[in-house]
Design a protein around this nucleic acid. Structure first.
Lengths: 152, 152
DNA sequence: ACTGAAATGTAGAACGC
DNA sequence: GCGTTCTACATTTCAGT
């Protein structure tokens, strides 16, 4: 990816509602050129979408947890992500190296809901679960550093 | 939170660039009423901000990992999140129950960068680390279900 | 691939209800 | 707290280079 596209992506990850006018000023191009580039970034899948960052406490989902899962029968075809995708409490599903097969990040309203969700996950995907409750979130979803070379 | 505010938040988590005009149609209010409500949601911190969702592969950060950390000296004051917040590779920092103190989600360009980052984390926060590499991400950052009652 | 400009649509504020 | 109106600004498209 090239310099100006990186600047555009960096600006939009930090503020997804920036106008094309503001964006154009920042990167030093005309509004229509920036617009064109954003459309291309969206079409190429570099930008996958836009979202509001919300307070999960405020929307009454104050309890987050990581759930590591492992199939009861590792010889079965492994389609756990598909079997779980209908559960809206699951924020994210990562396939991981190590002892477990997947790591889920979930958001629920209460311990009782977490218990119910764990049962649903176990039966829907035929897995065992190991749950790590989140006590607080010092920070989350920070905008990535978008680099020219791979330097750190 | 009340019905219409929930609808607004749900719509904006799914598409953070929705215009107030579109939003107004969906929730059945005038544009100015919706605008007012969004401003209040932002001021109350229900909506914390807006961001583009990007492909981490496309921005040359193809390697994600979870890093569980634990202080070497648990009697010391615990300010690991502050000591680590300057590292842009850290996407999120969660304080967790269980054997570990914090769980980090990090994004790097390569295994070599992950190794360097782990060293930085260990020395900056005086912690041991246990790293779980992400192999793939079936889904991530899905919009939450925004509920009226607490039903699942 | 960028610029400039024209037409349409949206944001943001003032005012009354 | 909502709706209406109005002005300024932003988005989007298109012709030109």
């Amino acid at each position: 990816m090239e310099e100006i596209d990186r600047a555009i992506v960096a600006a939009l990850t930090a503020d997804g509602r920036l106008s094309y006018t503001d964006l154009a000023e920042r990167v030093g191009l005309s509004v229509s050129a920036v617009h064109q580039r954003v459309r291309r970034l969206e079409q190429r899948g570099v930008i996958k979408g836009y979202g509001a960052r919300v307070s999960y406490e405020a929307i009454e989902l104050p309890l987050s947890a990581f759930i590591a899962i492992r199939p009861l029968d590792p010889s079965q075809p492994d389609d756990a992500p598909d079997r779980l995708s209908h559960l809206p409490e699951i924020d994210s599903c990562y396939s991981v190296a190590g002892e477990d097969f997947y790591m889920l990040l979930v958001r629920v309203a209460s311990p009782a809901e977490l218990e119910r969700l764990l049962q649903q996950i176990r039966t829907a995907a035929n897995v065992t679960t190991r749950t790590t409750v989140v006590l607080s979130t010092p920070y989350e979803g920070r905008p990535p550093r978008i680099t020219s070379s791979s330097g750190g």
